[in-house]
Design a protein around this nucleic acid. Structure first.
Ligand SMILES: [Zn+2]
Ligand SMILES: [Zn+2]
Ligand SMILES: [Zn+2]
Ligand SMILES: [Zn+2]
Lengths: 177, 177
DNA sequence: TTACGTATGATATATTATAACATTCAGAGT
DNA sequence: ACTCTGAATGTTATAATATATCATACGTAA
């Protein structure tokens, strides 16, 4: 599998880095679809044409994308797609770990390592909207340690960090105090 | 200031614990309003009757509450309140660190320590909807450490943890796998 | 064949949030 | 006192996001 600059296999902590501006986009999408097929086959779940198409659209944006933006694109091929069409597909893809929802953006993004169950944290650039997906054990542990101390049983962590990515800092030195 | 079981002053890491079912609710609200007055006086910002009333309503729920639920309650005293009425007040209260927004619930909650700027993490019980507000340095550091390594400049962290609080685990032993 | 479950189609509506323009009002400067 | 200004609020409309509900299609197991 290509893995296009992702170091998911060698160091799971960074699942998907900020995408450089030049990379083989088609390959990204193809890899994601292929991984999804594998995952769904294992799960015994049905990766239908509609679900595949929605996943392709999520990946083709290669960044967070909203449900209604997906709906518009989906309508290129399915004239009468409606909100439930896309929300159902998104639900399926989330349940099977193929995409993640970014709560603070009301948007969805392809998972960089769908074959492995994992926690996820996101670094979101406020300028270029690119996103890095992490599975930082130290972050996860810090959360569960504190939760344990309070007798809280963690089921799901949402960690979303807004800021400025390295490329954008370099491009525009950033004068805010 | 009462601080009703909060240990904000002695150990800043837990800003607001899960509220026990019996506590002096009126005192909670009064403390919050009083802290808000202090904070706004320092900021030179105007803590108007409307803003005060919305903050009281946020606190009186003593848990996360949605904008439209606030709007309904607000209408008891202001018959023609409209969405912008409450959203503007919420924006003000957030800008001044008096409330936080819980992204994963589209809801708002009073800040347990408005006099101190702080990062915030939330533990949210899926059963009783109670919320603990933390300012866990270890979590914050774990995030910034990883971000630094990637050259990412952190501006804002959203950490929201869904799970089951101690009281609810005790009450219902929880059989999910 | 029938019955059933899963997926999708289709329509309507709920929920959350913002845009845009009008009005009020208090304080600063004249 | 007059006027200007900026902040706050009032008012109406609409955008953006998400779900409820019922109908239809289709593969498959009894
Ligand atoms: Zn992932
Ligand atoms: Zn950037
Ligand atoms: Zn707080
Ligand atoms: Zn609970």
């Amino acid at each position: 599998m290509g893995k296009q600059g992702s170091n998911a296999t060698k160091d799971a902590e960074v699942i998907a880095p900020f995408q450089s501006h030049v990379h083989d986009h088609g390959q990204c999408v193809a890899d994601a679809i292929s991984a999804a097929e594998t995952r769904c086959a294992e799960d015994g779940s049905s990766f239908t044409p509609l679900r595949r198409e929605v996943l392709e659209l999520v990946w083709s944006s290669h960044g967070p994308i909203g449900a209604y933006e997906l709906l518009e694109k989906l309508r290129d091929s399915r004239r009468n797609a409606a909100p439930p069409t896309v929300y159902r597909a998104l639900d399926f893809l989330m349940e099977h770990g193929l995409i993640h929802r970014i709560e603070s953006l009301n948007a969805y993004i392809g998972c960089g390592d769908p074959e492995r169950h994992h926690g996820a944290q996101f670094l979101i650039c406020r300028d270029c909207q690119s996103v890095a997906e992490l599975d930082d054990k130290a972050i996860g542990r810090a959360v569960t340690r504190r939760a344990d101390a309070l007798g809280f049983d963690v089921e799901q962590q949402t960690v979303e960090v807004i800021g400025q990515c390295a490329d954008c800092s370099a491009r525009e030195p950033d004068d805010r105090k």
